[in-house]
Design a protein around this nucleic acid. Structure first.
Lengths: 730, 730
DNA sequence: TTGTCTCCCTCGGGGAGACAA
DNA sequence: TTGTCTCCCCGAGGGAGACAA
């Protein structure tokens, strides 16, 4: 047998014997980083080996690409890291999702647990995201991202073994699978009686661990003996956890851990406690969102089975689909063996995860039942997590329809009516690009699953949708769409549509099968309503003819007599006719009143805090708050909502209303003049920062809020697939 | 040998075997608390056994008595717990010391280290502390406080042993001193071959520890064997640490730890990190001081060799003495064996610990040299920590004089001149009580050691003291004395007085021995100036004759020609003649200007933050800040300072000055009307909440600030003496 | 091929008296 | 009286092949 190797001391209370040389960043060791795209902060001790990190993170992580646009879900963030914080306490209406640009991604590993997590520096996107994207970027986003490619291209010799009871027992060491040993470890001199060598492997933190690698036993096998139990003890490994050896191209051995999926509750934190969200930091996030400042988000891509940061394309893709009760779907899940597996299931309900705090959010709004009992533990998914099966939905009383966005279904034809278009492009040569975008808009009043869902539970007794019923949410889609949103208090009602719903039929092509029926031209909606035409005073000043056009048009477009569009257009009418009398229901108006008050509070909190520091917020002074920061558009929405209602029951808004009605000469709300014509944005639609200032009823707003920011429907590959293709698993 | 006892498991990674029954507060265990004055929050798990706590805390702790008045030193607090925080960053002038009422005292022990610490709930005293104190309270304060008495009266059988190498070795147990075992442990059946029993002792947290107590060996001795090493490991005891056994009257055994005096640097924190001061909490403290709200202070009475909370009497007593370079003193220190010892030394210098952040503070201003090489490590003490020896100071070029306050030296004679006394008492029947207080005032311009000290280094070239030289500090003595204070930038100059100093002779009776010379009648000063007569508009409106009286009087009172009083009175003159031209030195005035600006900043920060939330703070709007919160009196001081100076070089104060001079009708500064006569307090001096609004030069102010709150000179016993008298030590 | 078992051996450390300060 | 030492013994656990899945 070879010379006795210098192994770890038996004193297992010590750090690895090589601690002195390995305390800092991995990149500080020569020849360690094998990929060019190592984390940027090489000076930080938190920087970890990129490929090792990815190997530990597993195949299903969704690591946003630097520079890409993602969708950030504050609700999911809170849910994972801030369970016990009451969002109600702060009277703030959070956006459901925010489009953000990824400024930076840093990979970390928790010092204590070796759990990988990442730090994503996000900055809210202030412009219309899709239009800003260079041609093709969206498609590129759909591709495997570059980091993955790098990892894949350099995928080293690597293996991952889930620890057995013997591996973690106090007696004996770690049994190395033969192929793994041969693949990853330096070859032994098999001529010897008991060939052995010392292995040195660095963990995520760069700490070196030394093991005696011996080939012995009858039959022969590879074992790690001395040093192994120290590692197990130090890392607190138990059987079921997995270790991961990785040999870089330089021959450097690296060593990672994938802990067994600990039951989330009571388990380790998703991120180290220092980076755990707390009310204060969450307020900072909210603050950053409102001021469009960059903010850091930490999360564990492994534990976050439903990441709250998802690629834009994934989100947009989810908008392509209708998600209906009874619909079958597939979803990729990480199994215990860390191999990816496809689970299938059926949507059995749709409801708010948190009807109190986040009414109307899409976050995990789908209640699902898995086909396999071994399926994921959770029975809630977000739409973007699943892929609807092409098969017909399981038998229902009602046929669930999948209203696919149709790339070719919408010829870039001329609008059927002249559009008072002061902002939108008139260049129809750009229709192809437009169409892409408009395919999202196309859903307006038509293709929103949530409309259908909501309709199930909305207790409407007449053909009008009561706008005040639950009109409170502001949706900041890319910080650009500013709209109230229905806060649905529905719960899962199982399968079956209420007869009062007038949206159901609109939900799929199965009912209007393969008929690219002339829906409300998304182009028109887009260019007229959603990209700036209703800016500021125009809404108040000039009564444009748009609403009636919409009404007529959509009525026309739905010859089936389905009332979704009329309902939507009704809202539009309210919006465009802000001073028209609208018949508020009693209870509804009261609630609306309250919620509109919230809007004011929110605006004052966010903006006032940052800009004016004015503790007492008077409606009449709102206009003096600095311009250009109406990130969530509360101001304009507020404006219009106020303007839209002549109902005197809106007492808390009296000030605002008076403002609107009386301060005609110089009143401003959050920097937007209510009276000056020249403040109407004249930019073209694509770059307008004031978009979709429509005011309408909740149902419509719901639609707009959720669906306005639609991209074209590409079939993106799911991020992160095949990431650990080179990993042998045992 | 008796039945085998059920000892701890060998698994020393476990908590004590009785963990289940001992997780919470000690008072939740039946019959544990033996004293009536157990910590109030018995529900808190932090409540610990009072006597055990005291035993662990050692003999020299200074635990403030609930309800008593103490002096709180923010500087000391920061120094101990917030070393790395730059106080400069916040542009705040902290008070050097604040008189506070102790609302509550809670005893705690750190979960991790068992280190004792206490939580003191303080509320700044808003009134003239001494006058508020009931007759005799000060004396009572000087007595051993009640808690001590309780502990003493119930002092149980107790012993404390410093652990030897054998005690902490892995081989064998703990050798119990014979007397200790016989005194504290239940008797053994010595008829047996190897008598043994199981001992159960609760630690500070109420956790039970089980030990096998055996009497064996040749010669026989008492040993703790099984269970002992688990305890050592769990508590991370090393030889040098001490354990402490205590048998209560109910026979309950308790077990405490006194760790070896860890070198403060790099050692454990003085309090658990959760209670460690941080910039934020320190700002909370400052905030509480300014708003007179109660605030919690945590400190370790063992580690705090120089406590930043000291009893009032101790502080006042320190004012009785003059502390001069060369003076010998004694100080009680806790030796390694935790027995108290008296160290002697000599004052070798006086200088600011931190001339940048805390210029002029008394905190550890004395640089000392210890007689014994084994003396305390630190070479700085605060005046109140030491007792000047009665012996003459060691040989100097100059004789250091101790100007003892003379209880009987000041007959309560009638003032020599009619006093414009609208507030002060005219009842000279109360002179005795007055005299007590006035003995503090007596020091005005005469007996302030710091004046003498400062004078050593003040480079005065003419007989006038430049008020701008270092006039910046606000001293909040009991939150009531509002005065600037000389911030001395002197450093230790060794022994010897500058010839330019005109204070030196005033420093002691040795030079003017036993001559109760007619100093400025403190009564007069008191009743005229210091207890409210200069409130608000009076200063501005009516040019009172006080200043000249003072000048004349003090000149007259010091026939020796010593210029201290003239100097002081000079300041007075500036104050009382606010519009008179004063000859500012160039550099001095600039510095004064800057510092006065700080005063403004401070006022605006503290008050503005709390009340107005106004980010931009305009001088002209200061008056609108809410009334009644001028805790540190910055406003009035500021006022008067402004009013006192007609020098146009005070540019930053232009606004205020204009305010003062022009807004005669309704201007207020921090709630104090500058113009309305009826806002002058008419209460009698003793209860006035607005005291000493004199404006004067820095030297005088310094005196007033440091010395105004003087009580009579009693000889108080040092708190906490003999606390562990009943403890056997080995 | 590799998970588990059992055997063997080492070593740390608890417990005892010896011995000496 | 008590601190330290050495001896003894036990149990944890590392390391080996046996054996079987």
């Amino acid at each position: 047998m070879g010379g006795l190797i210098d192994l770890n001391t038996t004193e297992d209370d010590e750090t690895p014997s090589s601690l002195s040389s390995a305390a800092s960043s991995s990149s500080s060791h020569s020849g360690v980083v094998t990929t060019a795209s190592a984390p940027s902060s090489s000076s930080s001790s938190n920087a970890v080996c990129l490929e090792l990190w990815h190997a530990c993170a597993g195949p299903l992580i969704s690591l946003p690409k630097k520079g890409s646009v993602v969708v950030y879900f504050p609700q999911g963030h809170m849910e994972q890291q801030l369970q016990d914080f009451s969002v109600d306490a702060c009277n703030i209406n959070f956006p459901f999702h925010v489009f953000c640009r990824v400024l930076d991604v840093k990979l970390h590993a928790d010092e204590g647990s070796d759990e990988v997590y990442c730090q994503v520096l996000l900055v809210p996107e202030s412009e219309q995201v899709e239009q800003k994207l260079p041609e093709g970027e969206l498609d590129a986003d759909g591709e495997e991202d570059d980091a993955d490619a790098v990892v894949k291209s350099t995928t080293p010799h690597m293996f991952c073994k889930t620890l057995t009871a013997s591996d973690t027992s106090t007696h004996g060491g770690f049994s190395v699978p033969r192929r793994a040993a041969e693949d990853c470890f330096p070859p032994l001199d098999y001529s010897q009686q008991r060939p052995s060598q010392e292995l040195v492997a660095k963990d995520l933190h760069g700490l070196e661990w030394r093991f005696r690698h011996i080939y012995r036993g009858q039959p022969r096998r590879h074992l790690l003996t001395t040093g192994w139990s120290a590692f197990v003890n130090k890392k607190k490994l138990v059987s079921g956890d997995a270790v991961l050896f990785l040999r870089g191209e330089d021959g450097e051995l690296r060593l990672g851990i994938r802990r067994a999926a600990q039951l989330k509750s009571g388990g380790t934190l998703p991120v180290p406690s220092v980076h755990q969200l707390n009310p204060s930091t969450f307020m900072d996030v909210i603050n950053a969102l409102s001021t469009k400042c960059a903010f850091n988000v930490y999360y564990n891509p492994r534990l976050s089975s439903s990441g709250f940061i998802i690629p834009l394309h994934k989100f947009l893709k989810s908008l392509d689909h209708s998600y209906l009760v009874g619909m079958r779907f597939r979803m990729r899940v990480e199994t215990d063996e860390t191999t990816e597996r496809r689970c299938t299931g059926v949507i059995v309900g749709m409801s708010d995860v948190d009807p109190i705090k986040w009414p109307g959010s899409k976050w995990k709004c789908l209640v699902v039942r898995w086909d396999d009992i071994e399926g994921p533990r959770h029975n809630r998914v977000s739409p973007w997590e699943i892929e609807p099966s092409s098969s017909a939905p399981s038998s229902n009383n009602f046929m669930a329809a999948s209203f696919k966005r149709n790339r070719i279904g919408l010829p870039p034809e001329k609008p059927e009516f002249p559009v008072l278009n002061r902002i939108g492009r008139s260049d129809f040569g750009e229709s192809l690009r437009f169409q892409k975008v408009l395919q999202g808009q196309e859903i307006l009043g038509v293709n929103t699953p949530y409309v259908g869902i909501n309709a199930q539970s909305h207790q409407l007794s007449e053909s009008r949708c009561y706008p005040g019923s639950n009109c409170s949410r502001i949706v900041a889609a890319g910080n650009n769409v500013r709209i109230p949103q229905v806060s649905s208090d529905m719960s899962c009602r199982g399968i079956g549509f209420s007869e009062s719903s007038r949206f159901q039929v609109l939900q799929g092509q199965e009912i209007l099968p393969s008929q690219p029926y002339r829906t409300l031209s998304a182009n028109e909606v887009h260019r007229n309503g959603c990209f700036g035409i209703f800016g500021g005073s125009q809404l108040l000043g000039s009564r444009n003819q748009w609403s009636t056009q919409m009404l007529d048009n959509s009525s026309h477009m739905h010859p089936s007599g389905l009332v979704s569009s009329p309902s939507s257009v009704l809202m539009f009418q309210q919006a465009a006719n802000p001073l028209s009398n609208f018949d508020y229901g009693n209870k509804s108006s009261q609630e609306m009143e309250r919620k509109m008050h919230y809007l004011g509070s929110y605006a004052s909190e966010v903006e006032g805090r940052k800009l004016a520091q004015s503790p007492s917020y008077e409606p009449g002074s709102r206009g003096q708050v600095q311009e250009g920061t109406n990130s969530f558009g509360t101001s304009n929405f507020h404006n219009h909502l106020v303007a839209a209602s002549s109902d005197d029951s809106l007492l808390p808004l009296t000030g605002s209303r008076e403002l609107v009605s009386s301060c005609k000469s110089s009143c401003r709300l959050f920097g937007f003049s209510l009276t000056e014509e020249n403040h109407i944005p004249h930019e073209e639609a694509g770059s307008s920062t004031i978009t979709c200032q429509l005011n309408s009823g909740p149902s419509f707003m719901r639609q707009v809020g959720d669906e306005l920011q639609l991209g074209h429907s590409f079939r993106s590959k799911v991020a992160g697939s095949n990431r650990t293709k080179g990993v042998l698993r045992y």
